[in-house]
Amino acid sequence: MSDTAIEHYWDTLVTPYELWAEPTSARLASAALDLIAPSTGSSVLDVAAGTGALALAAAERGLHVRAIDSSSRMVDRLTERLGSLAGCSAEVMDATKLLYDDDEFDAAFSVLGVMYFGPATMTALTEMVRVVRPGGVIGVVHWARPVGGGPMFLPLARAVERLDDPEVGTLEIPVTTAYLEGPEVEEALRGAGCTDVQSETAVVDSPTPAPETFLAELDPFFGMFPQYRAAVARHPDRFRALVAEEVRLVERGENGHPVAHANIAYGRVSH
């Protein structure tokens, strides 16, 4: 997809994202805040904030949060949720061209955000470093396994494979980026100018819809895959049955587990 198409795609996901993706992001955001522990009253930037998993958790801890995202509808929803919290706001902004002054924040975070940016990842990280004061902290959270968007995609890929229809093909879940292992995420932060970089792995519950409603609830997420669209069109009943069966297997722990594995990496700004 083009950058414009991707932004429009995220505009369509506000409700399902908040319902089914944010619970996982929120648990990871809380783990990152626990680990890094910004002091009360610190100014924090949340980059690629989505519906606000980290921004809301940080605001609840007494931090002054500014959040940005490229999706205007995500920002509208986050603005609504932040309400009148003092020192907290959200706005549409390009993460690779932050409209903030140098050294403006005490910390900057991105939870399941900028590490998706491919070749632009380093630009976004460098921008985060630029706007954080010397001695401040940069923290990023990213998948520790190449599942392209969390455990919800695994039953889908397995069901597509079981159709064994050449006209549908195989659902190749895109690897999120080259930065998957903890040391690789650490190296990205070092490359952006951070020092004292370290990381920890977090494992959190990742709730998904019930088997019977799995496809209906997550259809907006899956619509980006042509193989999914072909499977629904060519084998609607069988495909839904196979997906439900795969979800039940995951729920029972027989073919994966409904948990998310992520790396939390963080480092100090030294410029």
Rank of each mutant, 00 (worst) to 15 (best):
S2G: 15
D3H: 10
E7F: 00
Y9G: 02
D11P: 09
V14I: 12
A21W: 05
P23E: 01
L28K: 01
L28Y: 04
A31W: 01
A32R: 01
A32G: 07
I36C: 13
A37I: 00
A37H: 11
S39T: 14
T40G: 06
S42M: 06
S42E: 11
G52N: 04
A55L: 02
A57L: 04
A58D: 06
A59G: 08
E60K: 08
R61Y: 00
G62D: 07
L63C: 00
L63R: 02
R66S: 15
A67V: 04
I68D: 03
S72N: 04
S72G: 12
R73T: 14
V75E: 05
D76S: 15
L78P: 07
L82D: 03
S89H: 02
V92I: 11
M93D: 02
T96I: 01
L99S: 14
D103K: 06
F105H: 01
D106A: 05
A107T: 05
A108C: 05
L112V: 10
G113A: 05
V114C: 07
V114D: 02
V114P: 04
F117D: 02
G118H: 12
P119G: 11
L125S: 03
L125T: 05
E127P: 03
V129T: 11
V132G: 09
V132T: 11
R133M: 10
P134N: 11
P134Y: 01
P134D: 13
G136Y: 09
G139Y: 06
H142D: 12
V147T: 12
G148Q: 04
P151K: 09
F153K: 08
L154I: 12
T170I: 15
L171P: 04
T177H: 14
L180C: 08
P183G: 10
E186R: 11
E187S: 14
A188C: 10
T195C: 10
V197D: 08
V197I: 04
Q198E: 15
S199F: 12
T201Q: 14
T201Y: 13
V203H: 11
D205V: 12
P211K: 06
E212G: 02
F214M: 06
A216F: 00
E217L: 01
L218S: 03
D219W: 05
F221K: 03
G223S: 15
G223V: 07
M224H: 08
M224S: 13
P226H: 01
Y228C: 05
Y228T: 02
R229F: 00
R234F: 02
F239Q: 03
A241N: 09
L242Y: 00
A244W: 02
E245P: 01
V247R: 06
R248S: 14
V250L: 14
G253S: 09
E254K: 11
P258S: 08
P258F: 13
V259K: 10
A260Y: 10
H261L: 13
A265D: 09
Y266Q: 03
S270G: 00
